[in-house]
């Protein structure tokens, strides 16, 4: 896996006229993980989007080295397509890496249109897209939403393997996420 780093310094985020958090600094190197915790609406998703470069920071700067892979509440799969073609669009775009369809329990869902899939099945499909992307820096926004306990363990195992290969995981979740050696950061410490 390529060398990857994630550095955020003195970040602040403003939504409307409200500052959600400020003075947040974070540094992760290959093989490191961090979980962002906090109540609903405290700015976990905003932080993930700022680090992904999809939202401007109100203050501070972000530097990410390495390809970013993002999971959020939107699976980015065409709802009217069957799961197989919907996933293979991303597979072709990402260079045809083999994805973990068997392991994620999606093998018998490939001909089901995405709009008929449950929340948990869509989340698994998004994970298959992420694994196919071979990104070094994983930004996971509520990756466990809608997953059953078996799938939760699977996601934790996948994240563990990703770290072992020298990747970075930044996880925003209010649910417990079991991952060895993972740092935790409470966003409540940075509210103004």
């Amino acid at each position: 896996m390529q060398v990857c780093t994630l550095t955020a310094s003195d970040l602040a985020c403003r939504r409307g006229d409200r500052v959600l958090f400020r003075g947040l600094s974070l540094e992760l190197r290959g093989g490191e993980a961090c979980q962002i915790t906090g109540a609903n609406g405290i700015g976990k998703s905003s932080l993930i989007r700022i680090i992904a470069g999809l939202m401007p920071a109100f203050a501070g700067s972000v530097a990410v080295e390495g390809q970013i892979g993002l999971i959020d509440e939107r699976p980015a799969l065409d709802p009217q397509l069957p799961l197989g073609p919907a996933l293979s669009f991303w597979q072709r775009l990402d260079g045809g890496a083999e994805s973990a369809i068997e392991r994620l329990g999606l093998a018998n869902l490939l001909d089901v249109p995405v709009r008929y899939l449950s929340t948990g099945q869509k989340k698994r499909a998004a994970l298959a897209r992420l694994l196919g992307q071979k990104a070094a820096v994983w930004l996971l926004d509520e990756p466990l939403n809608g997953l059953d306990s078996q799938a939760v363990q699977l996601v934790e195992a996948l994240a563990g393997e990703h770290l072992a290969q020298g990747g970075i995981c930044l996880i925003a979740s209010h649910q417990p996420f079991a991952l060895e050696g993972m740092g935790r950061m409470a966003l409540a410490d940075y509210t103004p």
Binding site: G53, Q67, G69, L70, A76, L77, D78, W90, D94, Q133
Partner: peptide, 11 residues
């Protein structure tokens, strides 16, 4: 809305 533009931006 489906998040496609976000994923393309990341790529």
């Amino acid at each position: 809305e489906l998040g496609f533009f976000d994923q393309w931006a990341l790529r």
